[in-house]
Simulated scan of single mutants.
Amino acid sequence: MNDNKFEVPTIDISCYRSADAYSDSVRAAVATELDRICREVGFVQVVGHGIDDAVLSDLGDALDEFFALPLAVKKEYRREAWTNRGYSAPKSESLSMSLGIPSANQMNDFYEAFTVGVEAADFAELDLPETSYASNNWPGAAPGFEPAVRRYFGQAQELARTLMTAFTDALGLDPGYFDTLIDHSIEAMKMNNYALPEGDTEFTGELTGMGAHTDFGILTILWADQVPGLQVLDLDGQWHDVQPADGALLINLGDAMARWTADRWRSTIHRVDPPVIDGQIRRRRSAAFFFDGNHDAVIEVLPGTLAEGEKGYAPITIAENIAMKVAGLRTGVAPAADLRETARVAAAGN
């Protein structure tokens, strides 16, 4: 792993949250810098994001409250096979298989997780499929969990839409271009706990924190402890350690944005492996808010993106793209399509 001259840039997006207080030239400069970062890195740290420190602190406390429960209790809220809601036990998923890359042991990602998201009932006027907008399974055994998570989730929803406005400018699109593609967006948040599974006394070396993968939707907002573990693959095939800066949230692009831009903007490959000290994993927490877009939105190349003779991705809906990736994550079935990201991981160094 080589960390020379690699950094995830930090950018202040206050001008997109308080547009009247800033000039058009300030927003234009931020949009230009976002375009550069999304082309070259695919990860960006944002400050001026507007999410209160108290909300972030309460989110961390909520994760502590739930993940401290006995494993048997947590499993009472386990995720059903067809949903993306509830508890996932350690070693029940393999993120690398979302790219069709098997690990030494098929399901060996040692993190545990709890996922919540928007429900079909949130859009009562629409006939939305439960497969994409499933009901939540809030854990009553952790009474502080739901209110704290809901507060953060609501502010992350606002931030995602602020970022979409900035991305629209950065891509040189007409104002509101994405509005009809995100007005009933699939939005989910996966809260992760990286620690030895209950009953394990020592790290075996055969487990993976979270295998190499890309995120599936438009963008991800990541809150995480300042504990090593997150690694990003650069364009030269080298892995680099990344930790959030003070007060910053990490933002990375997902597959939908990469497909929309024909890889002008990259869906950044990343993985997680917290440090192991004397056979013990240094505990790490994170919460990834996935902003995926409408289930029926078609991902096809954006206007002005392709050069003459250049070939983009075939059109696919948001829901179809997610389903293709999730099959590998949860069942070990490799995606049927050849994925460009798979070749990048295969060629990467350790």
Rank of each mutant, 00 (worst) to 15 (best):
235 L>F: 02
109 D>P: 04
132 S>D: 13
78 R>P: 00
322 I>E: 01
166 A>H: 00
307 A>K: 14
21 A>W: 02
2 N>A: 14
195 A>T: 14
324 M>Y: 12
89 A>K: 12
40 E>M: 11
331 T>L: 13
147 P>D: 14
44 V>H: 01
253 L>H: 05
130 E>D: 15
188 A>I: 10
122 D>Y: 10
76 E>Y: 08
62 A>H: 03
41 V>Y: 00
86 G>P: 01
251 I>M: 05
237 G>Q: 03
93 E>R: 06
113 A>G: 15
311 K>W: 07
67 F>M: 07
141 A>Q: 10
211 G>Y: 01
233 L>Q: 09
45 Q>E: 12
223 W>F: 13
156 A>R: 05
273 D>W: 09
326 V>N: 13
152 Y>V: 07
184 H>V: 12
343 A>F: 11
116 V>N: 06
266 R>F: 08
314 A>M: 08
317 T>A: 04
87 Y>G: 07
126 L>C: 13
253 L>F: 06
209 G>L: 03
239 W>L: 12
43 F>W: 09
331 T>H: 10
82 W>R: 14
282 R>I: 12
186 I>H: 02
154 G>I: 08
36 R>E: 07
165 T>G: 07
122 D>L: 10
212 A>N: 04
170 A>R: 02
262 A>S: 10
323 A>C: 01
162 T>Y: 11
45 Q>R: 03
79 R>T: 00
159 L>V: 14
41 V>A: 04
111 Y>T: 08
238 Q>V: 12
341 E>R: 15
94 S>M: 07
257 M>H: 08
54 A>I: 13
288 A>W: 02
121 A>M: 08
221 I>C: 09
101 I>W: 05
231 Q>V: 12
285 R>S: 09
265 W>K: 04
152 Y>C: 08
50 G>H: 00
289 F>A: 07
286 S>W: 05
102 P>C: 02
64 D>G: 14
115 T>L: 00
273 D>H: 11
57 S>D: 15
298 V>K: 02
230 L>F: 10
185 S>K: 09
167 F>G: 02
226 Q>R: 14
127 D>H: 09
242 V>L: 06
127 D>T: 14
290 F>I: 08
189 M>D: 04
232 V>D: 06
323 A>V: 01
59 L>A: 05
53 D>P: 02
130 E>F: 10
228 P>G: 04
314 A>D: 15
44 V>P: 00
233 L>R: 05
236 D>I: 01
263 D>S: 07
210 M>K: 10
128 L>I: 06
193 N>K: 13
150 R>D: 03
309 G>L: 06
138 W>G: 09
26 V>R: 06
213 H>K: 06
301 V>Q: 10
231 Q>D: 15
52 D>E: 13
200 D>P: 02
41 V>P: 00
17 R>G: 14
46 V>D: 01
42 G>L: 06
